[in-house]
Amino acid sequence: MDNVTKEARVKLFDKRYQILSILGRGSQSVVYKAIDVGKKNKEVALKVLVRKKDKKLTEQLRKEALILVSCKHKNIIQLYDFHALNELCYLSLEYAPYGDLNQYLHKVKKLTAEQAVLFLIQTAEALQAMHDAGIYHRDVKPDNILVANPSLIKLGDLGVASLPGEEFLLEELRKGVGTLSYMPPEVLVGKGFTQRSDLYALGVTFWEVLAGTHPFEGVPLLKQLSVREDKNLVPLSKKNPEVPQYLSDAILKLMRFKPQDRFSSAEELIKFLKKKGASKQSKTVSKEEVNKEEKKKS
C-alpha cells in the first residue's frame, strides 16, 4: 500500500476528505483510502479520475454510479457520493478494511471450506441482484471481490458493467474491457455477455482462490479458447483435497464450455450450495451424535 505525503494528509480533498493512503492505481483512476470529515470521520474509498476533462471517462464513472444506485445489496459495495464538477470527478465508496480477495488470502494464506462456500454464496447473491436489474458485471475476479470482514464480502468495481439493453461489442474486448483470463468461451468469440458469462468468471475465480493457482496460468493467447474445453478442466478436488466434493462439482459446473451446461442462474447455484452444505452439516451432526451415544454405552 502506497503512502501519501504528510502535506496531502493535512490538506482536505474537495474540502471534505482527508487522504490517508493509496489503495490502488490504474491508467484511468486512483483509489484512495480517506476519511470523510463531514460524516463523523467515516472511512471511505475514493475513486478519482486521473485524466481531467475527459468526457468519455467522466460518463463511464457516472454510469458506474448509476449502476451502484440501481442494484443496492448487502454484498455489493455501497456508493456514498458521485461528484463531477469542473475538473474534479470521483466516487466516494464503502471502504473494505481487509482489501480484495487476493490481498486477504495473502494475509490468511487460505480459506477454510466453510468460508469459501460462504464467500461464493455471497458473491452469487450480489450477481443475482445485478442480474435481476438486467445488469452484467463483466469483470468478476479476485481483485474485484472485497473483504469487509472474515465473514462478509462485497462485490466491487462495476466500471465495465453493462446496463439493460446494452450490447457487447468485440471491439470492447480488444480495448481491454474485462479480464481475458476470466472470460468465458462465448465472450472470447464475440457472442456477448449473459448472466451465465458472469457465472463462468465466478467459477474461475473460486477455482483459483481454492487451488492457489489460476486454471489457465501460462496458457498462450492462441490457446485461450481450447484450454477452456470441458475435457481440459481439472476438478478442484484433485488440486486441493480439502475442498468438499459438492463444492468442487459446483465450481466445475460454473466453468463448463457451453453456457447451457452451467447453472442457469446465480440463484440456482445458491440453492445447490445451501442444500448440499446443509446435507453435509446434517451428516456431520449425526455422526457426532452416534459417537456420543457409543461413549455413553461404553
Score class of each variant (00 low, 15 high):
Asp2Ile: 12
Leu12Glu: 11
Arg16Ser: 06
Arg16Cys: 12
Tyr17Leu: 03
Ile19Asp: 02
Ser21Thr: 09
Ser21Trp: 03
Gly26Tyr: 01
Gln28Met: 08
Val31Trp: 01
Ile35Tyr: 11
Asp36Thr: 07
Asn41Ala: 14
Lys42Gln: 15
Ala45Arg: 02
Leu46Asp: 02
Lys47Gln: 10
Val48Leu: 08
Val48Cys: 05
Arg51Ala: 08
Asp54Ser: 14
Leu61Asn: 00
Lys63Ala: 00
Glu64Ile: 03
Leu68Val: 09
Val69Phe: 03
Val69Lys: 15
Ser70Val: 00
Cys71Asn: 01
Lys74Met: 12
Ile76Leu: 04
Ala84Ser: 15
Asn86Ile: 05
Glu87His: 10
Leu91Trp: 00
Ser92Leu: 02
Leu93Met: 14
Glu94Ala: 06
Glu94Thr: 01
Tyr95Phe: 15
Ala96Lys: 04
Leu101Gly: 10
Tyr104Pro: 04
Leu105Phe: 08
Leu105Trp: 05
His106Val: 13
Lys107Arg: 13
Lys109Ala: 12
Leu111Glu: 07
Gln115Tyr: 03
Val117Met: 09
Leu118Ala: 11
Ile121Ala: 04
Thr123Asp: 05
Thr123Gln: 06
Ala124Pro: 06
Leu127Trp: 02
Met130Ser: 14
Met130Trp: 02
Tyr136Val: 10
Arg138Cys: 11
Asp139Ala: 02
Asp139Arg: 00
Asp139Met: 07
Lys141Arg: 12
Pro142Asn: 07
Pro142Trp: 07
Asp143Cys: 06
Asp143Ser: 12
Asn144Tyr: 07
Ile145Cys: 04
Ser151Ile: 11
Ile153Glu: 00
Gly156Cys: 07
Asp157Lys: 02
Leu158Val: 01
Leu158Trp: 00
Val160Ile: 13
Gly165Ala: 09
Phe168Gly: 01
Glu171Asp: 11
Leu173Glu: 04
Gly176Pro: 04
Gly176Asn: 01
Gly178Pro: 08
Gly178Leu: 04
Gly178Tyr: 07
Leu180Phe: 03
Tyr182Asp: 05
Glu186Arg: 10
Leu188Met: 14
Leu188Phe: 10
Lys191Cys: 05
Gly192Ile: 08
Phe193Ala: 08
Thr194Phe: 05
Arg196Thr: 15
Gly203Met: 09
Thr205Met: 09
Trp207Pro: 02
Glu208Leu: 10
Leu210Lys: 00
Thr213Tyr: 05
Glu217Arg: 09
Val219Glu: 04
Leu222Asn: 12
Leu225Val: 09
Val227Trp: 06
Val227Cys: 15
Arg228Leu: 13
Glu229Phe: 13
Lys231Tyr: 10
Asn232Thr: 01
Val234Lys: 15
Val234Thr: 14
Pro235Glu: 04
Lys238Glu: 14
Lys239Val: 10
Asn240Leu: 09
Pro241Glu: 12
Val243Glu: 03
Val243Ser: 05
Pro244Ile: 11
Lys258Val: 05
Gln260Trp: 12
Ser265Phe: 08
Ser265Gln: 10
Glu268Leu: 02
Glu268Asn: 06
Leu269Phe: 08
Leu269Ala: 06
Leu273Asp: 08
Lys275Phe: 11
Gly277Ser: 03
Gln281Cys: 01
Gln281Met: 05
Gln281Ser: 09
Ser282Phe: 12
Lys283Tyr: 06
Thr284Pro: 00
Ser286Lys: 13
Lys287Thr: 15
Glu289Asn: 06
Glu289Arg: 14
Lys296Glu: 10
Ser298Glu: 11
Ser298Pro: 03
